[in-house]
Simulated scan of single mutants.
Amino acid sequence: MDDGTRIASVDDVPATGSYLFTAEDAFTNEREVILVRCEEDPGVEAWVNNCTHEDQRLDRGSGAAMRDGQIICPRHGSMFDACSGACDNGEAAGTTLPDVDVAVEDGNVHLVDDSYSYLHEGGIERDGGPSSSSHIGF
């Protein structure tokens, strides 16, 4: 593949859960991004690691909660389709997660979105821990 930065092996993306990495957007802001498995080609999708309802990380460092091909917001339980990013329930109903373009080739996931540059595996270093006040447990 001539274009795109290798992020991870497809095997690194769990069947349920997510693979977390950090990228820089066009305005030099660091953004957390998650890779999730999807039944549609290319088999892996990438989404900005934030619920569309509130500033809530979907993956807080140990993988996003998932059920039946949907990513679950740990704060209010809204569920986002892993393939389309669309939500049709809960507080985030009617919204779609911001996507990040990736390609899969030879068993590897590559960042091909011109709006982002790969920085590193894992999330953004934060002081004071996660901001969640969730009462939902998984």
Rank of each mutant, 00 (worst) to 15 (best):
I136W: 14
T52W: 06
V33D: 06
N108S: 13
M79C: 14
V48T: 07
E30F: 08
R37S: 03
S78F: 00
S133F: 15
A23K: 08
M66Q: 12
P74I: 08
Y116P: 07
G63F: 06
T96L: 05
D11W: 09
L119Y: 06
W47I: 00
D113L: 05
R75L: 13
C38R: 03
V112W: 04
R60D: 10
E54K: 15
N89S: 06
V36P: 05
R57A: 13
D68E: 14
G77M: 02
E45Y: 04
G90I: 07
E39T: 10
D81P: 04
D55L: 12
R75G: 13
G43I: 04
D55F: 14
S131T: 15
F21R: 05
R67H: 13
R126N: 09
A82T: 02
A64N: 00
E39A: 13
N89R: 05
L20F: 06
V48S: 06
D99P: 10
A15F: 02
L35Y: 05
D99N: 11
I34L: 08
H76S: 03
D59H: 05
A103L: 00
S132M: 06
P130C: 10
T28C: 09
H76Y: 08
A103F: 01
E39N: 09
A103G: 04
R31M: 02
S78C: 02
G123T: 09
G137H: 15
R60T: 11
V44W: 00
S115Y: 12
M79N: 10
S117I: 06
S131G: 15
A65S: 15
D88S: 11
C83N: 06
M79L: 14
A46I: 02
G90V: 04
A92P: 09
G85R: 02
V36W: 07
I71F: 10
V36R: 00
E105W: 10
A93P: 03
S134T: 11
E91K: 11
E24H: 01
V104M: 09
T22H: 05
T52F: 06
V102D: 01
L20E: 11
S18M: 06
S117A: 10
E91I: 13
E32Y: 00
P98V: 05
N50C: 15
V10M: 03
T28S: 14
S131K: 13
R57E: 12
Q70K: 11
F27W: 12
S84D: 00
A64R: 01
D12T: 03
R31Q: 15
H110V: 07
G94M: 03
S115D: 15
I136M: 14
G94R: 07
R60M: 15
G128Y: 03
P14A: 03
E39L: 05
I136E: 11
T16M: 11
I34R: 01
I72F: 02
H53P: 07
P98Y: 11
E105F: 11
D55P: 04
D127M: 12
E125C: 05
N29K: 12
T96M: 09
G94D: 10
V100S: 02
D55R: 10
N50K: 14
T95F: 07
D114N: 12
Q56M: 15
E30A: 09
G61L: 13
